[in-house]
Simulated scan of single mutants.
Amino acid sequence: MSSGQGGHRLSSTFQWSLTDGGDPAELVAEFLSSAGLRVRNLGRTATQVHPTGDGTPCGAALYVSAAAGSVMAGGAVGPPTPSPALPDVYAVVLAHGSSGPEPAGASASALRPGATPSPAALSSRPFSLEPWADSWTADDHARAVALAREAIARGDIYQVNVVGHASAAYTGDPIPALSRLARLAGARYGGVLAGDGWAIGCASPETLVEVRDGRVITRPIKGTRPATPAGRHELLTSAKERAEHIMIVDLERNDLSRLPGAGPVRVDQLFAVREWSGLWQAESVVSAPLDGDVDLASLLRAVCPGGSVTGAPKLAALDEIARLEPVGRGASMGALGWIGHDHLDLGLTIRTAAADGDHLHVWAGGGITWDSDPAAEVAEAAAKAGPLRAALSSSAVTAG
């Protein structure tokens, strides 16, 4: 995922929050279209010409929260976010030209527009992070897993993703700490996006949706083990993990099949094992040709929120998530990436942290099926959050 090359400047921004009302998918699509990006027919990206004149758009960074994704899907939004300073949809258009604020790079590894201040207003004090405080205890998390299994036993859902949250107070500038996340192994969508009083740092390995060369692609990840030889064997031979994974692949196939303008959906790769920062994870590739007009708003409604972080059926899973989780998902489990003239590439914001004016926030969880063991699920969430907490710690930033 990358933007155009050469000199760029911030051109315009769009911001939407739950309290604003309206259809966020249509509103952001209209904004980007009015800014000169051809988001009303994404299937033509392979043949589009890149405008390069001064002031013409080279692309846009786009962020969508999990709550906004639920609105787009017509599902339950869930409890309030623990980081209300963050918008629920944010887009920033970059234009060709050297005048105006210069972005700190324009690629998957540097999404932050240069004109946006950090939440701490670039404090001169050294960065320092207080101890993490979880929004629920390990027992609370295990109890939520047990309740999810009861919902599965009743037939309300087949699978649901349960996510926990933790926060830590900080002083100083959090941007260097958030930027450090991009260095984590397997961070396909590593970078920082910042606005007025907030910032998001991402180390996600998962593709929510990509449009390139006339195809729409999603790469769901489901199934986790420690990145050891024994862990790889366990993941490959686990009937529970494979069944959970295939269920989400079927959900993603259904999501793409409902997309207007998409052709026959196929599974290009099934249950391939990848590594992310000390963990093995199973990934599949699902794609379809774009044979007709495909609008960005329709695409966002079809894929948001991502099936691997909701469950199946998606709307019923969103109801369970709203019932089980104590706080909102904030910047996590949403979308973050780049829209250019010849491609779109949005990562799913797992392995993601956010900063508001005085706290850093992280989220982690996992998919729950009937075979899930509550204690194992709690341990898996801790294993996913561990590399994020370590990278964000003040000692890690000082060492870097």
Rank of each mutant, 00 (worst) to 15 (best):
D156M: 13
L62P: 00
T81L: 09
E26L: 11
L18D: 09
G223V: 09
A227K: 01
R215N: 10
A35H: 03
S98P: 08
I157F: 10
A272W: 11
T47L: 08
T207D: 00
A106Y: 13
S287T: 11
G55C: 06
D345C: 11
L299V: 01
G306E: 09
V303G: 00
T116G: 01
T52G: 08
W276D: 12
A199E: 07
P117A: 06
S118L: 04
S11L: 08
P205E: 04
E252D: 12
S204Y: 06
A182S: 13
H361M: 11
A120Y: 07
R40V: 03
T398N: 13
L344V: 12
A364D: 07
C58I: 09
N254I: 05
A168M: 07
S83D: 15
L111T: 00
R266Y: 02
G164V: 03
L181A: 05
V211P: 07
W132C: 05
I175E: 04
P174V: 09
R180A: 15
A317S: 15
P51Q: 03
S284I: 03
A262T: 04
P84H: 11
A399T: 12
S179A: 12
A46L: 12
A230T: 13
T237M: 04
S332A: 15
H141P: 06
R232G: 05
V265P: 01
R253P: 02
A133S: 12
L27A: 15
S372Y: 07
A95N: 04
A106V: 09
D358A: 14
P51W: 07
T398A: 13
W16F: 05
G386P: 02
S123N: 13
G337I: 00
G97P: 00
D268W: 09
A169L: 11
V303L: 05
S128T: 13
A73I: 11
A95K: 05
L296D: 07
S98A: 15
P131A: 00
S204P: 05
V93K: 00
A29W: 00
V71Q: 03
K240L: 08
R154L: 13
P176F: 01
A25G: 14
S394M: 07
D20P: 02
K384S: 01
G263H: 09
A106T: 14
L270I: 03
S135E: 11
G367T: 06
A302R: 05
L129G: 00
A297D: 15
R112S: 10
R389S: 07
D319Q: 15
G367W: 03
S284Y: 01
P374N: 06
S2Q: 15
V89A: 05
L300H: 02
G337N: 02
V286E: 04
P326F: 11
G36R: 02
A312C: 14
E325M: 10
P79F: 07
R225I: 11
S284L: 01
S332W: 14
G53Q: 15
G75P: 03
A151R: 10
S284V: 06
S107H: 00
A106E: 08
L111E: 00
E150L: 13
T81S: 15
T398V: 11
G197L: 06
P260H: 03
A382H: 12
W276E: 10
L299H: 05
G261A: 10
G186D: 01
G172W: 03
Y189V: 05
